[in-house]
Design a protein around this nucleic acid. Structure first.
Lengths: 224, 224
DNA sequence: CATTTGTATTTTGTATACATGATGAAAATA
DNA sequence: TATTTTCATCATGTATACAAAATACAAATG
């Protein structure tokens, strides 16, 4: 899965990743992990040096990240890590809410029992991390939970757009579990979601997904 | 509006577009107008020559277009214009349907009477073109109608994603008006939409938008 | 002393040259 | 003759060099 991709025709095709893609992925991670701080200017020379590549693939990578909405390129001025305004976050969560509602509905229609069982297992691992208050592993599984649910929708466009928004909002979701009550609330939301999923109730799951993101906004809006 | 952009802080900022952006826009147009055929390989040397630029900004532009989903870059092999499978189209219309449903709801909540009047006027111009069976101008106004409605939602993320999907599907919407009955159906859908908009009925408008895209799929599914 | 103007320096943008990998045709082998 | 191998050619990927723009700073002017 790391270096292979399934084409539309169903043939397995090995794609040796270009340097460009590797750079894009690494810089994306730096942004998501907030090593590169939102609002800060990206020092091309410094990053190039630390990554050990030349300017060409690096700048191409920045173009990709700009199209994804992670950085903003100001012509002749430089590129800065995109800093989300509260309005940005709200608008993204609003859209993500609709997407995940759709994902929830479709997932219930199309997912197999095995796939649902895997989701439930994932959820239970999350509960263990919550019980232990291990925030980082919980957070990572949470990302995976939402990604896999989008994948279960069987709608590739939905998956792509959900992935894009989730990437932009990664740090927001992390913040969303910062306060104990907020985290507890998120866990409760997930309980609802899993219950609906087990019952194959697409409508209920969709609503639960949507509500979860609405509440996420409530939980983070005063700290973005 | 062509060369200026309103920043988040509210200051008007002139952005002289980089060569990269110009190239990206031109190639995007070539793809959308189908001068570059879906599935065909992009001849870098030839296009560079005809555009009169060097490889660097051109290749950066391709990275942008790849991130937007208009082309597919196969490492060491070349880049091809993305050819949409029926499944691609269906999944995109399904997602676009949700986005436009949301846009419709929000637009009714937030749009001023003046803005709604402009939409109605736009619709009436569309009707004139329909009466004259001028397909191309109708088609262009149709694009604008959907874009502006997304803009009226006041949700920038929604607007961005709607724009992206609309760009990918431009030719599909064109096909959607190819057969006379299909075109008549689309016009009827728009009548519903405008009626709901005038009544400030967000729920009804949202449903009309969604239904319109469902029907668009019905109209094109046997010819993609 | 504030403001402006000019200049040096740095940073960004673009073109080109070089390296690497894919493609296809001709020759060699079975 | 079919198949493989080799080599030439072409396309793609990357690095570097050059150009243009922005920035910072100093000197000059009011």
């Amino acid at each position: 899965m790391e270096s292979s991709t399934l084409t539309g025709e169903g043939s397995l095709e090995i794609t040796t990743r270009s340097l460009h893609d590797q750079v894009a992925n690494r810089v994306r991670d730096l942004i998501i992990e907030a090593v590169l701080e939102p609002g800060s200017r990206i020092d091309e020379a410094a990053l190039i040096q630390s990554l050990g590549v030349s300017r060409t693939p690096f700048r191409e990578a920045l173009r990709t990240l700009a199209a994804e909405g992670l950085v903003v390129i100001k012509p002749s001025k430089g590129v800065i890590v995109r800093k989300l305004t509260p309005e940005d976050v709200q608008s993204m969560l609003e859209v993500l809410g609709e997407l995940e509602r759709l994902a929830g509905r479709l997932a219930c229609e199309r997912a197999s029992d095995d796939e649902i069982a895997e989701m439930v297992a994932l959820h239970e691992r999350m509960l263990e991390h919550y019980a232990a208050r291990d925030r980082m592993p919980y957070y990572k599984l949470n990302q995976e939970f939402h990604s896999r649910l989008a994948a279960l929708s069987g709608n590739e466009t939905l998956q792509e757009m959900q992935g894009n928004l989730q990437a932009r909002l990664k740090r927001i979701r992390y913040i969303g579990n910062e306060r104990p009550e907020a985290w507890a609330g998120a866990v409760a939301d997930h309980e609802d979601m899993v219950k609906s999923l087990r019952a194959h109730d697409g409508g209920a799951l969709g609503e639960a997904m949507w509500t979860h993101l609405q509440r996420t906004w409530d939980r983070v809006k005063d700290r973005v």
